[in-house]
C-alpha cells in the first residue's frame, strides 16, 4: 500500500464517519438539518479525495475528463435547479427521480468498467459478479423509480395498472435477466449478454412498479432507494472503491429499515405491497379503499 493509497483510505474513512454521524443526527427534527450538512461535508471529502487519487493513480486522458466535467455540470445544474424550484407538494416524485438517476449512474459505472475489460480473455468472478448484480439492480431502480415518480406526479395512473399476461412477462424478464447474468459469469467478457441483462432488468423494473397503487408508491420509492444503495455498493466492489461500498451498504440497510417503518406507519406490510403489485389483487382492493 503506497502512502497515497493510505491517505485516500484515511480520508474515505473520515467521509464514512461523517455519513454515519449525519444520518444519526437526522433521527431528531432539531438536529436533522445540521445532520444533512455534515453528511454533505462527508460527500465533499469523498469526491475531492477520489479526484486527486484518480489523477495521481491513473491520470486518464483529456476526453474522459471532459466527458465527466460536461456531464457532471449538466447533471448538477438540473439537480440544483429542480431541487430549488420544485413545489413542496411535488418533492416525493423529485426524490424518486433523483433515486432513478442514482441507480442509472451505478449501472453506467459497472457497464463502463465492463467495457474497459472487454479485451481480457476471462474476467475474475470478484469483478463479474458485482458488475452483473449492479447492472441488474441499477436498471431495475432506474426504470422502477421513474414509473413511481410518474404515479406520484399523476402522469401515470395511480391505480394499480395490470394487463393480461403482465405477470408472465415479468417472470420471463426476471428469468432472462438471471439467465443472462449467470451465463455472463461463465463466458469471456461478452457485451451483448450484459445488454440483455440491462434491457430485461429495465422491463422488470417497469412491470414491478406499474401494478402498485399510488398510495403505496412512497413505500416503493423507499424500497428502490435501498436497492440503489446496494447497486452503488456493487459498483464499489467492481471498481474496488471503499467509499462506494460503505455508503452504498449504509443506504441499502438504512433504506430497508426505513421501508419497513414506513409500511408499518401506513398499516401495510411490504410483502403485501410487492406481492399485491404482482397481481394477487391485494393492492387493488387496499389502495382502492384508501383513495
Amino acid at each position: 500500500m503506497s502512502i497515497v493509497e493510505f491517505l485516500a483510505g484515511i480520508l474515505y474513512l473520515s467521509a464514512a464517519t461523517l455519513f454515519v454521524i449525519g444520518l444519526h443526527m437526522m433521527r431528531a427534527p432539531s438536529t436533522a438539518r445540521q445532520g444533512n450538512l455534515i453528511s454533505a461535508g462527508g460527500m465533499t471529502i469523498a469526491v475531492l479525495t477520489t479526484i486527486v487519487f484518480a489523477v495521481i493513480d491513473s491520470g486518464g486522458d483529456w476526453i474522459g475528463w471532459a466527458a465527466l466535467i460536461v456531464g457532471a455540470a449538466l447533471g448538477a445544474t438540473y439537480g440544483i435547479v429542480r431541487a430549488r424550484t420544485v413545489k413542496m407538494t411535488a418533492i416525493p416524485q423529485l426524490v424518486s427521480i433523483f433515486n432513478a438517476v442514482g441507480g442509472g449512474a451505478a449501472a453506467a459505472v459497472a457497464f463502463a468498467d465492463f467495457v474497459a475489460h472487454l479485451s481480457v480473455t476471462s474476467l475474475d468472478l470478484t469483478m463479474s459478479i458485482p458488475i452483473a448484480l449492479d447492472v441488474a439492480i441499477g436498471s431495475i431502480t432506474f426504470s422502477g423509480s421513474l414509473i413511481a415518480a410518474g404515479k406520484l406526479q399523476g402522469i401515470i395512473s395511480g391505480k394499480p395498472l395490470t394487463f393480461p399476461g403482465a405477470r408472465v412477462i415479468n417472470v420471463i424478464a426476471a428469468v432472462i435477466a438471471l439467465g443472462a447474468g449467470v451465463l455472463l459469469l461463465l463466458v469471456p467478457p461478452n457485451l451483448p449478454l450484459l445488454l440483455v441483462v440491462l434491457v430485461a432488468s429495465l422491463i422488470f423494473g417497469v412491470l414491478m412498479v406499474l401494478p402498485i397503487g399510488g398510495a403505496d408508491a412512497p413505500v416503493i420509492v423507499s424500497l428502490l432507494n435501498a436497492f440503489t444503495g446496494l447497486a452503488v455498493a456493487m459498483a464499489g466492489f467492481a471498481i474496488d472503491n471503499q467509499a462506494l461500498i460503505i455508503a452504498g451498504a449504509l443506504v441499502g440497510a438504512a433504506g430497508t429499515i426505513l421501508t419497513l417503518q414506513m409500511a408499518k406507519a401506513m398499516n401495510r406490510s411490504v410483502g403485501a405491497i410487492i406481492l399485491g403489485g404482482f397481481g394477487t389483487g391485494d393492492a387493488k382492493t387496499t389502495s382502492g379503499a384508501a383513495s
Binding site: F19, G22, L23, M26, G35, N36, S39, A40, M43, A46, V47, T50, I51, A54, V55, D57, S58, G59, G60, D61, I63, G64, W65, A67, L68, G71, A72, I91, V95, F98, N99, G102, A105, A106, A108, V109, A112, D113, A116, P218, S222, N225, A226, T228, G229, V232, A235, G236, I239, N241, A243, L244, A247, G248, L250, V251, A254, G255, L258, M262
Partner: peptide, 23 residues
C-alpha cells in the same frame, strides 16, 4: 430521511470519476 439516504448514495459520482480516469 429517505431523501437524505438518497443523497448519500449519490457517492456513486466517485465511481463516475474513477471510470473517467480509465476510459
Amino acid at each position: 430521511m429517505m431523501s437524505a439516504a438518497n443523497a448519500i448514495h449519490g457517492v456513486v459520482i466517485a465511481g463516475a470519476i474513477v471510470i473517467a480516469s480509465v476510459a
